[in-house]
Design a protein around this nucleic acid. Structure first.
Lengths: 221, 221
DNA sequence: GGAAAATAAAACGTATACATTATACAAAGG
DNA sequence: CCTTTGTATAATGTATACGTTTTATTTTCC
């Protein structure tokens, strides 16, 4: 069973893990709904063993919930859960930002600036999907500047959970503009290595992110 | 195949997950060393399927490292890794403490105080293991007072990883006394709902924790 | 006709078997 | 004698088979 496509992962359960994550984020697997192993196996063309391994992995990550003798279901997030996650992710980014102002090299900061400029381009073209991805990438990059592997890992896990939410919460043009403005402040503060300024910018950005999605999530969560 | 022991979990892979975690913490499985599935299966008296599921779960948790086609190994933590984890766990506890000062009920705070008194008893009796467990329990409890499930989960994961380290780092009598003193300050600040005081107490406590274990870990990590 | 019990179907949990990949050792060639 | 290559062994990766629990359905009894 040799893969035809060139992007073949080494292990199947890794690929499956990635695939199921995407399916959850894109809404193909619905919140709170049960994940039946049989049908999903057939759909993905794999056997139950690697699929179950993937589900266990995602369970520890918090995207999937396991109930003994009743299998897996897509973890359902209440509004409270989401707010909680944003509180934590905010603290993480603030911490990362503070460290980054001390530790990051000029070159690294320049890379983030480049990402920011790229994102501005998507904003001008009103390319929401590309903007969205660049946005996430910037936040991840700032965290990476802390050179703290634990922080990077924990932040990535949380961001992964929130992807689904942000995916839904497409706000209007005015709010979008505000978000871009907040980003500009973030980058400027980072370049000036102004830790307090960066913390404040990151904090208000994430607080606003919560406000932006707050009304949208009622439908689903 | 009904379990003889009374502590049987509903699902085997859950029990195995717990067991392997303990084996890592207690040093039965050595840092950096490979985990061979066959022998471990035989030792635990289970088949490979649930054991592999447990390994995938622990991998996402960060205790185990998976390499394609080369299986699992006990994650090896460098001194830098440990410092990173402590930085993050410190931020988490500070955040939790701040929220707890606002949200926690008097009854909940009283419970933490009770735990603290219990811990003092173990300290007087020089019962290190019981003290150690009560210590962990207090930190977890404070985080729980934030009523933030995400924070609780993330903190628990990190604390789980650090257990092995703290397990080694038994410091001398003077340092132990200092740690107890720091705890006293924490609890007092919490009871007074003095967020700043609690943050400071927690922060210095974890900074000192790092100093206390710093020289001990060179042997292993 | 409705409720409870028995039964059948389906899904999960676990074990075993097979395929693939890595590793160690030995033999052959330079 | 060292290097290289081929082969054997062992470990991981994946699929299938079996047992158990849950759930839906049907039948029976009130």
């Amino acid at each position: 069973m040799t893969q035809i496509g060139s992007i073949s992962r080494n292990t199947l359960h890794d690929a499956i893990t990635e695939r199921i994550r995407d399916m959850i984020i894109e809404g193909e697997l619905v919140q709170g709904e049960r994940i039946y192993e049989g049908p999903l196996c057939e759909q993905l063309g794999v056997s139950r063993t690697p699929l179950r391994e993937a589900l266990r992995f995602l369970a520890s990550e918090g995207l999937v919930e396991l109930t003994p003798n009743r299998g897996a279901s897509v973890r359902r997030f209440s509004a409270q859960d989401i707010e909680d996650m944003l509180v934590v992710i905010r603290a993480m980014e603030e911490l990362a930002g503070k460290i980054a102002c001390e530790k990051a090299s000029d070159a690294e900061i320049a890379e983030v600036r480049a990402l920011h400029e790229e994102m501005l381009g998507y904003y001008r073209n009103q390319d929401r999907l590309a903007y969205y991805k660049a946005n996430q990438s910037i936040h991840s990059s700032i965290v990476r500047l802390s050179h703290n592997a634990t922080l990077v890992h924990a932040h990535a896990g949380l961001q992964s959970r929130l992807k689904r939410i942000r995916f839904i919460g497409h706000s209007g043009a005015d709010k979008w503009a505000a978000a871009v403005e907040e980003h500009e402040r973030m980058i400027t503060a980072l370049e000036a290595r102004d830790a307090d300024g960066l913390i404040q910018a990151l904090g208000s950005h994430l607080t606003n992110a919560w406000l932006r999605v707050q009304d949208k999530i009622q439908d689903e969560a």
